[in-house]
């Protein structure tokens, strides 16, 4: 049963991109375990504002696990200790009375801290701009029988498309690699007829941009897929490798 707990929250505070950050610990009493993690941070911020202190800056938007904005590294896991959820879907029942919860921003060179727990994830947008699209207008939704697509292929494309671009993969990776993100974006389009035509060009352009932005080299540790809030599979990385290598050898 959910009850009320008293906790300590150890949060990374950093005034700006160029300033050195540090941890600060706040005591928080009477937190309902049915509250979401972000609601707990809201309560903490109200407490800070009441004390005339600077509230904690953090990214959040939809709070239902689909926008990919929330980005907290909670107790050593991106999006917290539960699996296959975003931070906004994390609830306080995963923590016990008296616990000290450590909250950090994503730490990767390609994601510089803007303030406190907010990081700049525009690197992912730039990779998308390099080729994560279909160049022509493919029109409205055709009848399902107009272009026959096998169900397993459609499923795999949908699973890849579930990537919300939150950055947890690169944040969890010891190599700072964005391969799971890039491979999901390449896969969702390469699997379907509309996107297949530009698959080789897309893989080359997106990988080139990823390398240019300074993301690391994937060594298949699998931390990305283990921490992904949408359980995007490592199989996508193999598809990206395949697409890229085939394209390069054809050149």
């Amino acid at each position: 049963m959910d009850s009320y707990i008293n906790i300590k929250v150890r949060v990374w505070r950093q005034a700006g991109p160029k300033v050195a950050g540090h941890f600060e610990t706040y005591e928080l009493n009477h937190i309902f375990q049915g509250a979401s993690f972000l609601e707990m941070i809201d309560i903490l911020n109200e407490q800070l504002i009441a004390e005339h202190k600077d509230p904690i800056a953090f990214d959040h938007d939809c709070r239902e696990g689909i926008c990919g904005m929330c980005s907290m590294y909670v107790n050593g896991h991106p999006h917290g200790p539960d699996s296959a959820i975003t931070t906004c879907q994390l609830h306080m029942r995963h923590f016990h009375d008296g616990e000290t919860i450590t909250v950090e921003p994503w730490r990767s060179r390609a994601f510089p801290v803007i303030k406190d727990l907010m990081v700049d994830r525009q690197a992912y947008d730039r990779i998308m701009q390099a080729g994560g699209f279909v160049s022509v207008n493919t029109g409205g939704v055709p009848d399902a029988n107009a272009i026959a697509i096998p169900k397993p292929v459609a499923d795999e494309a949908m699973d890849a498309a579930s990537c919300i671009g939150c950055g947890a993969c690169a944040a969890a990776c010891k190599n700072g690699s964005a391969m799971l993100f890039v491979s999901a974006k390449v896969s969702q389009l390469a699997l379907l007829p509309q996107g297949k035509i530009e698959a080789a060009k897309r893989a080359k352009a997106m990988v080139a941009k990823m390398d240019e932005l300074g993301f690391g080299n994937c060594t298949n540790t699998g931390a990305c897929a283990a921490e992904c809030p949408k359980s995007v599979s490592l199989a996508n990385i193999a598809r990206l490798n395949r697409e890229y290598l085939c394209a390069k050898f054809k050149d």
Partner: peptide, 30 residues
């Protein structure tokens, strides 16, 4: 590769490091 990967990771390290389930120890220590 290791040199590049360490640079990509950046200088700031996580205060709490965990090994997620399903990640082999050897894969991180190649």
């Amino acid at each position: 590769l290791t040199f590049q990967n360490r640079r990509a990771r950046g200088n700031s390290r996580y205060a709490v490091e965990t090994c997620p389930e399903g990640v082999e120890w050897q894969s991180k220590n190649m």
